[in-house]
Amino acid sequence: MSILSIENLHANVGETEILRGINLKIEPGEVHAVMGPNGSGKSTLSYVLAGRDGYSVTGGSVEFKDKDLLELEADERANEGVFLAFQYPVEVPGVTGMTFLREAYNSRLRYEGKDEADAMEFLKLVRSKAKDLNMSDDMLKRPVNVGFSGGEKKRNEILQMAVLEPKLAILDETDSGLDIDALRLVADGVNALRTSERSMLIITHYQRLLDYIEPDHVHVLAHGQIQRSGGKELALELEANGYAEFDDKV
């Protein structure tokens, strides 16, 4: 059974059609990379999958673990196991990192009909995961992402992913704005979360991230469609030749 099965997906932002028939299947444990030039629809794909308002699906279907993903609210999708690591993680004034994580974690437990987590146990769990990502206690006490550097924000995304343990992680341009050290730290965090069950969809413009997180499959997205699919060598080819050959195709 596929984790994710996208068939002929069409979606609009406002009146403009951005996704024009996407087909993609992801099996458990697989890491897929979607690469493409700016404006190809990469971020739209991630938002449509996560269920953001303002993106209307005009055709096709998305199944997630045999459920109709498009029928679910954004919070239900998250509780089913879809996780979007944001390209621009949002600053949330006044809500501390710890409160945010606890609410998210307990939401999922409630969704599954379970009791909320013991506060002390949960604190211990978060602290140990934060330590792996080189994040201080102080960062968890501060409001979510407020005053964080670009690298800190991305690490915070990975921490949330580590705590929430999704079945499908969508990483939207996770490498953007990171220097090489921060990139390595984030990539190590992601790799530590690779299991034979957990699937990942890595959305990126540059091949650079894929040096650190090795994909099983690479797809090229342009003009709202997947133009080509291949193994990890396709990423290297794109790095050498750029996206020029896909720009002509409309």
Partner: peptide, 28 residues
């Protein structure tokens, strides 16, 4: 909307997300 979506994308339902954000607003 950006704040609400970020919270919902982590599994927090719309009402809890609104409550958290309003509480944080006054909490400051």
């Amino acid at each position: 909307e950006e704040h609400l979506f970020y919270l919902k994308a982590r599994g927090i339902n719309a009402e809890s997300a609104r409550r958290l954000l309003v509480e944080a607003y006054i909490g400051e």
